[in-house]
Amino acid sequence: MNILVCISVVPDTTTKISFTDNDTAFQTSGVQFILNPYDELALTRGLEIAEANGGKVTVVHVGLSDSEAVIRKALSMGAEAAIRINAAPTDAQQVASELAAIAGGYDLILTGRESIDYNGGLICGLLGAALNIPSINVVTRIDYINGTWSFDRDIDGGKESVSVQGPCVASAQKDLCEPRIPNMRGIMAARTKPLTVLEPKNNASGVTYTQFELPAPKQGVKLIDPSQAAELISLLKNEAKVL
């Protein structure tokens, strides 16, 4: 069984977001970059399934060499091999087309539900469409039972269970598993695991980010005395007009 996990590198969740060059680029200086939390879940569950069924997990990342520390982290969690496609990621469609070029032949492909920076949530569907295999978004359970993939996924207003025979791509949602923390042996082993660098094949272009902006700051909070809390309801009705 061969499992491919697509990983992205994102700013740490505590990052204060700001922009440079007249708000046309994300300010990366002083920002700590991490393995996307949803990808961490995808990888952990992929490893668990591979270990239980005798399989191998490969991770793939589209990005430049500054991502290698994060790729090594994925290897230290237990992935056997890594592929880095040497292109700066600019858009989900560009990333998906590069991933599709190497993603054929795997039994299961996993991604995170979305990256926590650009929040596109598109890679799973784009990759499924490009490889002409089913895509199952936001899964909270993955099992491999008698040759069939079985998933629970979040849907609008509930959950559903689905099954798929044959290769498919799924995106990981929280609740899938607890993220695995690399141990010392894993960290040592990761140093010598293969990390293959491939040049981009498609050089597809998608959308272009032209301008960034921050939300307008709040005007200041209006405080209400806790003993007169009922007043809040009338303010929301008559002043804010949201009730």
Partner: peptide, 14 residues
């Protein structure tokens, strides 16, 4: 919306 709601981005589709 980008950065999980911390910012917005304008994107061009061609």
């Amino acid at each position: 919306s980008v950065f999980s709601g911390k910012a917005f981005a304008w994107v061009q589709l061609t």
